[in-house]
């Protein structure tokens, strides 16, 4: 009997648990040169706001040991341009489409959600966790009351299932997760980047134009895994786990910790074909361990 890799995120069936992380994959066009996008469970598009955002001054990228800092600041052309220029490309493929929503105020978030009224997408991912925008962004994702409020505000204006993306820059991740659940979230994704910094000692200046930025990559994987594990035990929502996943073994760890799907971020930069290698590695692991359904191993860690 064929193995089952299908997973269910808030009623949306993904062909497999492999998702791309927002902001690392654009809308898939560039990576379609190297992989078959039909073999992805879902593509999370770059963050999109109601109006275009300019982003932060360069340098925006700094490599760290086993990780990378970024301070891009969610530069994007706005929802209208995304819907016209990117979405038709994404819709050519069987991968589900997750739209990552950005804003600075609750009104911003509601406005960008409404930009998708009547537009054919599968899931929203609410970005209340980006550390690189001054207002909104992470400020909402680190205050349980605000997180609940913005989640509810969007649920009130859309029927598209809503995943809330959590910031790790909090004392108690479970508290925020429960707040999103109370606000009506249909799923959670975690983690976003951890606040970090790097200094050029010769120039005596921070490397990033924004001084501080968000750390991602293998360096943060243990933190991400711990948070997914804690949240999965505490809430009754499907989770897209992410944070430094760069191999099949990493992905399986997140699933065993309780994630329904896994998102691959900057590992795409290190290896443009990594998503396919992770998928093949999961299948090989299932064969070797006689696992018929990927959902069998979800949350097996007590």
């Amino acid at each position: 009997m064929a193995k089952n890799l299908k997973v269910n995120i808030a009623g949306v069936i993904l062909n497999n648990p492999i998702v791309t992380a927002s902001g690392t994959f654009n809308s898939g066009k560039e990576y379609s040169q190297f992989i078959d996008l039909n073999k992805l469970g879902a593509i999370t598009a770059k963050g999109v706001s109601h109006e275009p955002w300019q982003g932060n001054p360069p340098p925006r990228i700094a490599e760290t040991h086993g990780g990378m800092l970024n301070a891009v600041g969610l530069q994007n052309y706005g929802a209208k341009a995304f819907i016209q220029e990117d979405l038709p490309f994404m819709r050519q493929y069987s991968a589900k489409v997750i739209v990552n929503l950005c804003g600075r105020t609750i009104e911003d978030y509601v406005a960008v959600a409404r930009d998708f009224d009547g537009v054919d997408i599968d899931l929203f991912e609410l970005n209340i966790s980006c550390p690189n925008v001054k207002a909104g962004g992470m400020a909402m994702g680190t205050d349980p009351k605000m997180a609940e409020e913005v989640t509810r505000a969007i649920k009130n204006v859309t029927k598209t299932p809503l995943i809330v993306k959590l910031s790790p820059n909090v004392t108690n991740i479970v508290e925020i997760a429960k707040a999103a659940e109370a606000g009506g979230a249909d799923g959670l994704s975690l983690i976003n980047t951890l606040l970090g910094m790097q200094i050029d000692i010769h120039r005596r200046k921070p490397i990033l134009g924004n001084k501080i930025g968000g750390l991602s990559g293998p360096a943060i994987k243990p933190v991400a895994l711990r948070m997914v594990y804690q949240v999965a035990k505490a809430v009754n929502l499907p989770i897209i786990g992410m944070g430094g996943i760069s191999a099949a073994e990493d992905a399986i760890e997140f699933i065993m910790a309780g994630a329904t799907a896994v998102a691959v971020g900057i590992a795409n930069f290190t290896n443009p074909r990594v998503t396919m290698e992770i998928l093949e590695g999961i299948e090989a692991f299932m064969d070797k361990n006689d696992i018929q359904d990927i959902n069998e191993i979800r949350g097996v860690i007590e």
Partner: peptide
């Protein structure tokens, strides 16, 4: 400074 090199990360501007 570049991240991906292919246009997805919007890092080199």
């Amino acid at each position: 400074r570049m991240g991906c090199g292919v246009g997805t990360c919007v890092g080199c501007v």
